[in-house]
Nucleic acid binder design. Sequence first.
RNA 1: GGCCCGGUGGUCUAGCGGUUAGGACGCCUCCCUUUCACGGAGGAAAUCGCGGGUUCGAGUCCCGUCCGGGCUACCA
Length: 517
Amino acid sequence: MTVRVRYAPSPTGSPHVGNIRDALFKHLLAKHHKGVNILRIEDTDRTRYIEGAERDIMESLHWMGIQWTEGPDVGGPHGPYRQSERKEAGIYAHWINVLLERGLAYKAFDTSQELEEMREYQQINKQPVGYFGGVWRDATPEAVEKAEKEGKPFVIRQRIPRNETVVIHDFIRGRIEWDTNTVDDPVLIKADGMPTYHFAAMVDDHLMEITHIIRGEEWISSAPKHALLFDAFGWERPVFVHCPVIKGKDGKKLSKRHGDTRCLDYRAAGYMPEALANFIALIGWSPGEDREILSMDELAEAFDLGGLQPSPGVFDIDKLRWMNGNYIRALSPEALTATVKQYLTVPDIEEYFTRIPEGADAPIDAAMPAAVALMREAFEKTPELAATALLLEQPRVTTLSEFATACMFFFQEEPPFDEKAVEKWFGQPHVGPMIEHFQKWSSGLQAATLEDCEKAVRDYAEANSFDKMGPVVHPIRVALTGKTVGPGLFELMSALGPQVMAKRFQRALGRIAKANV
RNA sequence: GGCCCGGUGGUCUAGCGGUUAGGACGCCUCCCUUUCACGGAGGAAAUCGCGGGUUCGAGUCCCGUCCGGGCUACCA
């Protein structure tokens, strides 16, 4: 039997990472077993529908490298793949009638006010809250007919059997059982004629021959209803797999309050999809060995439902950063350039960094858009310099966006001086003559290889009896970059080239003079 | 309130009756070194939520308890 799974989001917003993690698990399982992953859009709630959500869903999936072989965009033998379209096709109407005829579902004409009063009463009397029959579960055919004739709006509810025990076998947790007297009668068809999740998802899962229902653990509570619905139809139940949720640092389910939750925000922030996938796959799942860096192929190869964990995990952004840096460092020079250039085309970088997160009083990084713009410009005007700069910063960067800020000094006409750096080095007496020497040296040059630069600096140190390189290297670095941190000095000098060096040394001379007043 | 799920260092996790409880992130120290990183070597950090059992032996099995979480919509 081939494994068939489905990712079935509802278009109520842009998918967040917890949701995408579940989608990733499905993709991995399907890939591992050479099965089929389906994308199905669950748009049965028109009041919550958000324009553009479906596009975001597919974009998130594409970016992450999650594939599906049946879906609204690619079609397939079990279409349509949007529940609103399936409703139009009469699929749910057909199956609800089967239930109605068998007496396994019934029409309920309660008004929302009546339902509210019922819940209030149950609450006060400390009874289980829910619809356990009301007046309609066992209403006479005459009463139902009368209500229908009067044109009263109604919903169709599932008739949950009473005084029984329902057992489901969750793949991760094993046997879970409920007394059916604690399971209320869920609405299957709403008053507007649309099916609810409880009905549509199960009918579709059966019709689409889904073998494993993989979803978040928040669905465990309604699992008995779903299992009972399969039973009511006489359908074989799929395997239930309830994945643990991903929590924020405070232990609560991941939400906007925890900063980035939107999958595509990680793209804008400069994370590589391979790293994000690798990272989230390891929350709630483990290959059972110590290996932690796994490519998508390796994940699929190793993926196994048995590695799923029952307990929720916390999203640790620091570990993601570490992992992302790892992926960046693994990039070949060619791939590095291609990856960063690709990143520079991400449409919402500006929007992302200037956004003020919920609860914060400042944008994420207001300076980033300018740095990114400079990087784009550099790739156009001086592509070789840009590529070299990337290479030199590769070991010390953890996100793609950091390249922009880290490489800025390469491209700026006059990189600003870090005041602390100036204070520390430019006041020393040997610095003036030294920078003057290198100014002359560089202005006489046509080109400067790494070896040329190293030789020049070492020769100067030796000629002037420096026993340590620090006092020579650091002031030169500050003169050239304005900073005390960055790539190796010789690499950096050679990348900048003699013309730029000469200009910057000249400018530093002015600054040194001021520092010594 | 009712029903259900969960509980190994701060975090992600390995463990599936017998281990000095392993790895990773983060943190600290040292090495490499012209800085920052990267890389390498160490270190601190878990009475396995707690209490009872079962057993020669329990993180691993059972019961209770506490804490955390989810559901309790004509939302998914």
